[in-house]
Structure formats: C-alpha cells, structure tokens
Design a protein around this nucleic acid. Structure first.
Length: 265
DNA sequence: GAACAGGTGAAGT
DNA sequence: ACTTCACCTGTT
C-alpha cells in the first residue's frame, strides 16, 4: 500500500539511522527492510510517497503507531528554543520519528549496546534473533523476529557464547528472566520514575540504558538518555538538559543525530 | 600490541 | 558524592 508522507514528516534514513533501532537495513536506493512486532516490512520512498509491503489494515493497526505517525512533531519541537545549537539540530533532523519499539526488545538491545558501536550492536542483536527468534521467509530470503524474553531466559551459557557479546550475556539472561516473570507488566500504570527504578534494578541496566528503554520502548518522551555524545553537547555546545520539558527525549534524539553526523559517524 | 568504544557496578577516596 | 577500574569483543 502507499501513503502520502513527505520526507520532512518522515525520513526513513534519519529514523532508521539515528541510533534508536538496530533491525532495519538499507534495501535498494530509497528503501529499508526490517522486522518489528514479529512482522517483516519493506518500506520505500518515491518523492512524497511511501510504499509499504503491508495491507492497509496492518498499516493502520501496527505500522502507523510504530512510526508514531499520528503525532505532530512540528508542534512538539516548537517547545524547544529554536535558536543556537538545538535549533540547528532540530532543522538537521527534521523527519526523525521516535519509534514505538517493543519494550523487551529495547531493553535487551540497549543492554547489548553498552560500550559498543552500532555495527557491533546490530551484529549481536542479529545473532540473537538467528539463534532463537522466529523465521520469516520472503522471496527466498530469511528474516528473523526478535525472540521473546522466555526464549532468551532459556538459553544456556554455551548458546549465549554464539552472540559474542561478552560480559553482557549474563545481563540479558537475567533481564530476560525478570521480564518473563512480569517485571514490565502493567507498565502503563507506572510513572516514568517508577518504571526507571524497575529497570535500573536489573543488573547491567544503569541510568542511560534505562532512559533508552523508557524513550524507545515505552515512548516516555520526557526520558533523556545522556550518553557520551550528549554529555559532550552539554559540555561543549551549551545544551541545557533541563530546558526541554515533556519532549526532552525527542530533543535528545535530534541532538544525538546531529552531533554524530557532524562528527562524521 | 595497546588503546579505545553510545556503560555499569564495585571498590576506593 | 566523586574517581578509578575491570569487564568481552572488535576495530584502529
């Protein structure tokens, strides 16, 4: 199916390559393919149109919320001071959408992300999906869905070695046990601070990973993950983390993408 | 080889 | 409360 959706509202490149997700890969000149919510999606831009490999019903039920397409990003970013470094970052990142990723997938992925880089994170996540995710075949190619926590909790230490994720292996295994045991159930009834406390109670989950999970897995837009790049922006570019209000996480993502891209990454 | 990487937790001031 | 260090693996 096709939808009218200008680049300025939804940029595939910026959304998939701003560091929030690890399972969408470039496909052709203007397209991406990936798996989320157990479903494979091919998505491609042609001018102001996007074509998606799903039915209109599936788009409405799954992908429209996943891509946060009902939200008005122009309005949300109007809360920020549109001057100076943050203003540049917002202009540069126009078209980024904050995805509504599965909380467990976000938790597991960002535990793996610590002290690593995007290619390696993608490798670890991909091996985990190949190891125990569900197979999805399409036109002769095989894709894998992200495994449920129960599957990961059941992995043996020697199976975990296949991931080559080092000391993070025990972190994801214990997190998987906790999630399978209901740690994140009924999260919508919890405040962001309560949810953050639950997350940081896990071994290997500190403030930064917890805030990534809150933002990318629970769509808590006020969560502000501060990694080394954001700390650099605060120290060197005059960014004030207390000035962003309820959409601080969105501001963070523009700043992160801008500083990474301008650093040549 | 050594140093470092999108972080965390433990142990030391 | 703040600083230092080890931790797996991969890349420079």
């Amino acid at each position: 199916m096709r939808i009218l959706m200008p680049e300025a509202q939804f940029s595939l490149k910026k959304t998939f390559e701003c560091g929030q997700c690890f399972r969408f890969e470039r496909e052709g000149e203007n397209g991406y393919a990936g798996v989320a919510m157990g479903r494979l999606l091919h998505i491609e831009r042609a001018g102001d149109e996007l074509s998606l490999s799903c039915s209109r019903d599936e788009f409405e039920a799954l992908w429209k919320p996943y891509f946060d397409l009902d939200a008005d990003y122009a309005r949300m970013t109007s809360d920020f001071i549109r001057l100076g470094y943050v203003g540049e970052a917002v202009d540069f990142g126009r078209g980024i959408r904050i995805l509504r990723q599965d909380p467990w997938e976000a938790l597991c992925s960002f535990i793996l992300s610590q002290c690593s880089n995007i290619p390696r994170i993608k490798g670890m996540v991909e091996r985990l999906c190949r190891l125990c995710g569900g197979e999805i075949t399409s036109e002769g190619r095989t894709f894998y869905s992200f495994p449920p926590a129960e599957r990961v909790a059941a992995l043996s230490d020697s199976q975990l070695d296949f991931l080559r994720c080092g000391y993070r292996a025990q972190y994801i295994k214990s997190a998987a046990l906790a999630v399978a045991d209901g740690l994140l159930a009924h999260a919508s009834a919890l405040s962001t601070d309560e949810l953050r406390d639950r997350l940081t109670g896990l071994r290997g989950v500190g403030q930064k990973v917890a805030d990534c999970v809150l933002l990318f897995g629970f769509h808590r837009m006020e969560a502000f993950p501060a990694d080394v790049w954001i700390k650099r922006a605060i120290a060197e570019k005059g960014v004030d983390p207390d000035s962003f209000g309820q959409y601080a996480g969105l501001a963070q993502q523009y700043i992160f993408y801008y500083i990474r891209e301008s650093a040549g990454g």
